[in-house]
């Protein structure tokens, strides 16, 4: 049996209010997306300043990273919240002689790391200017695993980037290390760090 519904004829034309209400709603949605992206960026990109007067270094590192100034490097910040390899930015200063070239320094680093890092391999080496200072960028990979022999930790491929700067009798090595799978995603953090770095 067919049902016939009889209703009074209503206009389906939108009123001005309805139209604007809809537009405002969509506009609010767009604004909300922008706000959300801004919130995300401001949280992810929030930084904390670090100053080492003795070493003459001023830097800004991601706010949610943990800082460690007590180890072999004068500055190290790590993102302890990520799974797997903890994304790391660190600065080390190495004494060198005045006749040590960047090439020598890279060779020394390669020799040392080949002894201590599994499957260490240099990917590329380029020269550029960092804040008007000549620097060398060294890209490499290696395999990292947990030192605890009693845990079933799967080794992780780590990708790293060193920025080498020589001045006076010192070599400044700014290092960025991240899981190879998330390296590109985390690289902007390092680039912002480099942009704010002063020494």
């Amino acid at each position: 049996m067919t049902i016939i519904e009889v209703r009074s004829a209503e206009s389906t034309e939108l009123t001005q209010r309805q139209r604007w209400s809809h537009y405002f709603t969509l506009f609010y949605g767009v604004i909300a997306v922008v706000i959300a992206l801004n919130l995300r960026d401001s949280t992810l990109n929030a930084t904390r300043s670090y100053v080492d007067i003795q070493a003459g270094i001023r830097a800004a590192y991601p706010q949610t990273w943990i800082i460690d100034t007590g180890g072999a490097s004068i500055f190290r910040a790590r993102d302890m919240a990520v799974a797997g390899f903890k994304t790391t930015i660190q600065i080390a200063i190495r004494p060198i002689s005045l006749s040590t070239s960047t090439r020598n320094l890279i060779d020394i680093l390669t020799l040392t790391r080949a002894q201590t890092l599994a499957a260490y391999r240099v990917l590329s080496q380029t020269t550029f200017f960092l804040n008007e200072v000549e620097a060398t960028e060294l890209e490499y990979t290696y395999v990292s695993s947990d030192d605890n022999p009693f845990l079933a930790a799967v080794p992780i491929v780590v990708r790293g980037r060193d920025i080498l700067i020589t001045r006076g009798g010192q070599a400044i090595i700014v290092t960025f290390l991240a899981d190879a799978n998330t390296y590109e995603q985390n690289l902007p953090s390092f680039q912002r760090f480099l942009a704010d770095l002063e020494f």
Partner: peptide, 19 residues
């Protein structure tokens, strides 16, 4: 929005409230 003549900001407001 359908049955009354509310302010055009009501719907965005309700959306904001729901969010």
């Amino acid at each position: 929005m359908r049955f009354e003549r509310p302010s055009p900001f009501l719907m965005p407001l309700m959306l904001a409230l729901g969010a």
